[in-house]
Design a protein around this nucleic acid. Structure first.
Length: 289
DNA sequence: TTCTTTGTTCCGGA
DNA sequence: GTCCGGAACAAAGA
């Protein structure tokens, strides 16, 4: 479930906690992630220093002191924990809220860093991955190279939108989920963005008016910025609380709100749930035409 | 037991 | 070759 805002929040807290620390050793507890963690990669990063951390779409790029970059994708349930000596385990972000004990069970990798700091990668469903890449080749990486513009990029504008959709005939929700069109959005934020844009998720892109395209662009930037400000969204399956949590889910207007009254004051509609391309979509059939 | 959930890749048909 | 939709993947809760 981590979409751009959650990854950005993780990036910020990792940046604060592990920049300038060096990697002493790495323990693979379960390397069978989306791609198997390679032992030779682990060997290559031993002794290197963590120089800086960047985000591209939903990917984290951890720059090391030589030519290497660690590329991380959190998949659906990947998360990092930081553990310092004499301190209990801290989450790296306001992100997931875990039940007690869950963390240990799904810890997959442990990075032993300098200053007696441990960085733990935990992933319940193992859809995330961690791989090594050289700085020179990062834009040739098979994941990174196919990404479309960042939503906050000035190149992501009306001109780009109009050109991209020319001759295509998908529905708008599918397009916004497509990382080649714009990178970083997932199911949750696309639902929210279409609500604010007053556009039905099943609308064909060929039928959208120019003012509607502008609305979509504006709301993508607006919703993502606000979500980052609130520390992202916390997955709702987990119940007990410890540490700081993302709070943006409290601001959801439609996602997960089937049957709720539409949040627009003058609207008597209810939020509906339908399936589009095997994903659930929530919308108000009165406000979203 | 079956359905649902999430992001991404892969595959086949148009 | 491009476009597009559907299935698959892991794991857990309802």
């Amino acid at each position: 479930m981590p979409e751009l805002p959650e990854v950005e929040v993780v990036k910020k807290s990792l940046e604060k906690e592990i920049t300038n620390l060096s990697i002493k050793r790495v323990k693979i507890k379960d390397g069978n992630l989306r791609y198997k963690v390679k032992r030779q990669d682990i060997y290559k990063i031993k002794g290197l220093k963590i120089k800086k951390i960047k985000r591209r779409s939903k990917y984290l790029l951890i720059f090391l002191s030589n030519d290497f970059i660690i590329i991380v994708h959190l998949g659906m349930t990947g998360k990092f924990f930081i553990k310092k000596k004499n301190k209990s385990k801290q989450k790296t972000s306001f992100y997931y809220n875990l039940q007690n004990g869950q963390e240990e069970k799904h810890d997959r990798l442990i990075f032993y860093l300098s200053k007696e700091t441990k960085l733990i990668y935990n992933d319940v469903r193992k859809f995330g991955f961690i791989t090594l890449c050289s700085k020179r080749k990062v834009f040739e990486n098979k994941h990174i190279k196919k990404l479309g513009p960042e939503p906050f990029d000035r190149n992501f504008n009306l001109d780009y939108f109009v050109k991209y959709i020319n001759g295509k005939k998908r529905v708008i929700k599918d397009l916004l989920m497509d990382q080649k069109f714009v990178s970083g959005l997932g199911n949750i934020y696309v639902n929210e963005i279409l609500f604010f844009s007053n556009i039905n998720p099943k609308r064909k892109i060929s039928n959208l008016k120019e003012f509607e395209l502008l609305q979509i662009i504006k709301n993508i930037k607006k919703v993502l910025k606000k979500a980052i400000l609130f520390g992202g969204s916390t997955i709702k399956d987990f119940k007990s609380s410890s540490g700081k949590l993302g709070e943006f889910q409290q601001h959801f207007k439609v996602y997960g709100k089937k049957g709720h009254q539409c949040s627009n004051l003058d609207c008597k509609g209810k939020v509906k749930k339908i399936t589009i391309s095997n994903r659930s979509s929530f919308f108000c059939s009165i406000c979203q035409k």
